[in-house]
Design a protein around this nucleic acid. Structure first.
Lengths: 226, 226
DNA sequence: AGCCTGTATATTGTTGACAATACTGTCTTC
DNA sequence: GAAGACAGTATTGTCAACAATATACAGGCT
């Protein structure tokens, strides 16, 4: 049965996916109040499944809801975005450490291969921040999964990354940073390949801290308004 | 208006709270399949709001849902529970550090006062694990809130604690551990009072690690089956 | 003129009925 | 006698109408 893995998708799941990507891609702008009927016609849904999806999104912190008053996309302030990076720092540090202990050799080989792909992507898609961001996302995704820590991966992939990506979509990566980030990625993978969990954790924390400082600097220089 | 803060509660919120506490208190046992209509009659609800609540709970990882097949309470294995503690270790470490930097003097004073209350609780309610657990929860709750990191507090209080409490309800605290835990709490508060974030983080991580080892030992000794 | 109050309206919350799907038991066949 | 297929049933997913509430606007009062 090749179709055994085809899980039946319910309308609520569909609604959830649609809304989540719409929020991440910035089609629904933060702070904007959105009506239920408008969303229904927009995504061809009925209100039942939609409300279920809204509940899930609210629970994940992507929406805020006031009873009888409507829902709106969450708007994260600059300081809150920085706090998000602080959380990522410790959680992904843990993920890197556990990945070093638990990833299979095959997974590590694949991870190295993806880094090569990313390098080509950065060279080819010169300045196209979108693809660079996707590459970065891919890397962190693999580490989170490689940790074999179900809840940790769930929290990173299901919660934090969506919120971070929501902002990464609209801020261009600074020139030079992608190459530096790639170098940092390589060192982290090196540590994982050597099964040095402590080092992998340290390097990952420093990597995310660098990304945070990069954004912080941009905000202070006024290049970026959130 | 003293009633300005009375947020209108919707039936879905009610359903969510009911189910969450029912799961945490063990009234709904893990792995057990539960029907929607049964839940409705049990909590005097209708299926609409209930389904919304189920969606939220699934999104938080307290329930697992298979389309057209029903929902069941998530059953966390022993190793998964240990992973939960690993996550707590890094996240609460961060919370303690930020709390040391940001809590007001008043909050610290209050925190010290609650520790005195906990001490009395432990002495009086000799062996009554329930109250001891509540005191412990209270302490960690205050630290998380004191971090002034909205998302961090949300993830700790809204996600992790419920899963941990779900198991703490059914496992008795070992004799001797409450007093030791209280001592550890005192040292953490001491570090926070001295605004020593680094120390607070270290002590909190060690505290949670000790709790993890305590449970791990019990499981290995067979005193505890999950 | 500004503020408060009351009503109208539009939006959200809720309900119960209907449709689709997975499980269970029985019957048939090997 | 056991295994597979079929149908019935019970449960979940979906829908559209109804009720409740917050916002907005208009009118009156201070």
């Amino acid at each position: 049965m090749s179709e055994a893995t085809i899980q039946t998708y319910t309308r609520a799941d569909e609604a959830f996916d649609c809304l989540q990507t719409a929020i991440v891609k910035g089609e629904l702008i933060p702070g904007e109040k959105i009506g239920e009927v408008e969303l229904c016609s927009r995504f061809n849904l009925t209100r039942g499944p939609l409300r279920e999806a809204l509940g899930r999104l609210e629970s994940r912190g992507l929406l805020v809801r006031r009873p009888h008053a409507g829902v709106k996309v969450v708007s994260v302030s600059a300081s809150e975005l920085m706090e998000l990076y602080r959380i990522r720092e410790v959680m992904e540090g843990l993920a890197a450490r556990q990945a070093a202990e638990r990833m299979t050799d095959q997974e590590i080989t694949d991870l190295k291969a993806t880094l090569d792909t990313h390098e080509r992507m950065i060279d080819e898609a010169q300045g196209q921040a979108y693809y660079q961001a996707e590459g970065d996302y891919d890397f962190h995704h693999r580490i989170a999964t490689g940790s074999r820590n179900t809840k940790l991966a769930q929290m990173l992939l299901g919660d934090l990354y969506y919120m971070v990506r929501m902002y990464r979509y609209r801020l261009s990566t600074s020139t030079g940073r992608p190459h530096r980030a790639l170098g940092e990625h390589r060192r982290i993978v090196e540590a994982i390949a050597q099964r040095d969990g402590e080092l992998a954790e340290f390097l990952m924390k420093r990597h995310i801290n660098a990304a945070r400082l990069n954004i912080e600097r941009k905000i202070q220089e006024g290049e970026l308004t959130i």
